[in-house]
Design a protein around this nucleic acid. Structure first.
Lengths: 184, 184
DNA sequence: ACAGGCATGTAAATAGTTACATGATTCG
DNA sequence: CGAATCATGTAACTATTTACATGCCTGT
């Protein structure tokens, strides 16, 4: 069966323990957000569909008077998840407004391109720093258990550090070019 | 003014010379595709909107009997493009199904995760190779002219090479873990 | 008492892909 | 002559974001 990508995110997130929609959203924001996001507007309707398809089962688990539904994966849901995991990945997309601006920067003075690179650098260095703070938590959980969330987190850190570094190198290149130009 | 992201891709693509919708699409596919894509379903309607807004002007330029409209940027369109270029980039998104699968790979035997990494590696190495083939063309155009398309292409190459390398290192890590496990 | 987090959901808008329809021109 | 490429567009669908509405619970 071919489900929507968000469906698999949900199945994955509840594969170890049942969770509420709210919890799924928080987890996504803490973990897969940087390479696969999901909003409430996707999660709740998708949970309903998965429930109707029998891949997920709702369990009422109120906290006090507040209603709360934990969503558990069914045997069939687990089969779907595993089937998907074993198929080759299809989607590799990136939308990077910074690179797009840089691409067209020839229509402006080089100084403006340098500023774009500065913004990109700041953004990527900041993201890398924030992800690095999550590393100790992910390392703990890994021990004896699942090594993959940590592995993926490290990919995120490395990627953002590589990108920040690339921006710095390109800024330097623009500075050098400007200096050469100036000394002619 | 706040235009759709695709609008800026179009304005950028026609900023140096007028182009047909078909040409814009081909250019996008050859250049910005890996960090900002666009389909006909976006390009033609957007051209109409930009035309109505006075940022783009259509010029009839038939080839033989075949109708053809070249779209030229207007003075106002150029102002919009430059304004946008000078604002800080907002959008940084990635959708990487491979990393998503890897993230959930704890529910399967490690061998399956290694296979996912293998696919990811193949895909990224292939993309890097294809981009590297475009480098000579981009280098030529740069001389005396616009250095930014080449710069961005090199970012694409470096990124895909970094990613391919990361996949290899993680595959090795899984192999080592399996060996340690086996020798206990 | 109030802020912040927990919890569920929907409506509207925007974005984007895919598939289709149509037809001319060019190159081998 | 047939295939590939040039060229324009639309319809239907899928995906996704944003904003809103509602209200309980916990800690200060």
């Amino acid at each position: 069966m071919e489900l929507s990508p968000t469906a698999y995110v949900i199945l994955g997130m509840i594969s170890r323990e049942p969770r509420s929609g709210y919890e799924i959203k928080s987890l996504v924001d803490e973990t897969t957000r940087f390479f696969w996001a999901a909003s409430y507007g996707q999660i709740y309707p998708e949970l309903k569909r998965l429930s109707e398809a029998g891949l997920v089962e709702g369990v009422e688990a109120p906290r006090g008077d507040r209603k709360r539904t934990l969503h558990a994966i069914t045997a069939e849901g687990e089969r779907e998840l595993k089937d998907w995991l074993r198929r080759a990945p299809q989607t590799f997309e990136m939308r990077e407004e910074g690179l797009l601006k840089l691409f067209f920067s020839g229509v402006l003075p080089p100084k403006d391109a340098a500023e774009t690179l500065g913004w990109m650098h700041e953004q990527r260095a900041g993201t890398a720093a924030r992800l690095r703070e999550l590393e100790p938590g992910a390392s703990e959980k890994r021990d004896g258990g699942d090594p993959f969330p940590l592995m993926v987190l490290q990919a995120g850190i490395e990627f953002n550090e590589w990108f920040a570094d690339w921006c710095e190198r390109m800024e330097a290149r623009l500075r050098d070019a400007a200096a050469t130009e100036g000394s002619k």
